[in-house]
Amino acid sequence: MEFSPNIVGFACQWCTYAGADLAGNLRCKYPSTVKLIKVPCSGRVEPEYVMQALARGADGVFVGGCHFGDCHYKTGNYKTSRRMMLLTKLLSDMGIAKDRFRLEWISGAEGKKFAETITEYTEQVKKIGPNLFKGGK
């Protein structure tokens, strides 16, 4: 059977989660790999969540927030950006393919972009192959 990656997604409720809903309204097709966890702001996503998902065997982790300047809480996404930059470095250091992780800014008007991003990102994770970790709490 073809490998279909299991991807855990975190999406801020104002932009990316709304963008994903819009993709639905527009019936933009994309692979059924990503399952979103709704958070108020991308700034609520702790790097530990990403690590935990990967440690538990998720093949990929996606985080989506508003474009810079558009965060509903003014600056949450800047904080996300900084945290996730550090996280990416850490992942590489720990021998986890950093491309398993993806951070994107997708607005509530960008349904098509959401679908395209997930399609492209799924391909990327497929290339890396299954995550063989099975630990975590």
């Binding site: 809903d21 019936r27 933009c28």
Partner: peptide
């Protein structure tokens, strides 16, 4: 969210959408 983020976007993959 099994409509906007599922059935509406995975119409050509019933098994995947159900999973």
């Amino acid at each position: 969210n099994i409509r906007d983020q599922d059935s509406w976007v995975h119409g050509d993959d019933h098994a995947g959408a159900t999973r």
